[in-house]
Computed example of a mutant assay.
Amino acid sequence: MNHATTETRLNISAGLASVSVALILVALKLWALGTTGALSIAASLADSALDLMISVGGLVAILYAARPADEDHAFGHSSAEDIAALAQGVFVLISGIVIGWTAIARLLSDAPVALEGQQGGIAVMVVSILLTLALVLWQRRVARRTGNRVVAADSLHYMSDLLPSIGAIAALWISDRFGVTQVDSVVALAASVMLIVGAARIGKGAFDALMDRQADPELIAGIERIVRDFPGIRGFHDLRTRMAGSRVFVNIHIELDGDQTLREAHAIGAALRRKIIETYPQCDVIVHKDVAGET
Results as ranks from 00 to 15, higher is better:
Asp229Ala: 14
Arg228Asn: 09
Phe207Leu: 15
Leu262Ala: 15
Thr241Leu: 04
Thr261Gln: 03
Phe230Ala: 01
Gly269Met: 05
Asp212Ala: 11
Glu255Ala: 14
Phe207Tyr: 13
Ile226Tyr: 09
Asp259Met: 05
Phe236Gln: 02
Met243Val: 11
His237Cys: 10
Asp257Phe: 09
Asp257Leu: 02
Arg225Phe: 04
Val248Thr: 15
Asp257Ala: 02
Met243Asp: 11
Thr261Trp: 01
Ala244Leu: 07
Val227Leu: 07
Lys275Met: 11
Phe236Val: 06
Glu264Ala: 15
Val250Ser: 03
Ala271Glu: 05
Phe230Trp: 05
Arg213Leu: 12
Arg213Pro: 00
Phe207Ser: 12
Ala221Arg: 12
Ile220Val: 15
His253Gly: 08
Gly232Trp: 12
Gly222Asn: 08
Asp208Phe: 04
Ala221Glu: 15
Phe249Glu: 10
Ala221Gly: 06
Arg213Ala: 14
Gly222Pro: 08
Ala221Asp: 15
Arg273Cys: 14
Gly258Ser: 12
Gly245Trp: 00
Thr261Val: 03
Phe249Lys: 05
Val248Ala: 08
Ala244Ser: 14
His253Ala: 08
Ala271Asn: 04
Leu262Lys: 02
Ile223Trp: 06
Ile276Ala: 02
Ala209Phe: 02
Leu256Asn: 01
Ile223Tyr: 07
Asp259Ser: 13
Ile220Asp: 08
Ala215Val: 01
Asp216Gln: 07
Gly245Ala: 11
Thr241Val: 02
Ser246Asp: 15
Asn251Trp: 06
Leu262Phe: 14
Leu262Gly: 14
Glu264Asp: 15
Ile223His: 09
Pro231Lys: 01
Asp238Asn: 13
Gly222Leu: 04
His266Trp: 03
Met211Asn: 10
Asp257Asn: 09
Phe230Leu: 07
Val248Ile: 15
Lys275Asn: 13
Val227Gly: 04
Ile233Arg: 00
Asp216Leu: 01
Ile220His: 04
Asn251Gln: 13
Leu262Cys: 09
Asp208Cys: 06
Ala244Val: 01
His253Val: 10
Arg263Ala: 15
Val248Ser: 07
His266Thr: 11
Glu218His: 11
Ala206Cys: 01
Thr261Arg: 08
Asn251Gly: 13
Met211Arg: 09
Thr261Phe: 03
Arg240Asn: 07
Val250Met: 04
Leu272Lys: 00
Glu224Thr: 11
Leu272Pro: 01
Gly258Tyr: 07
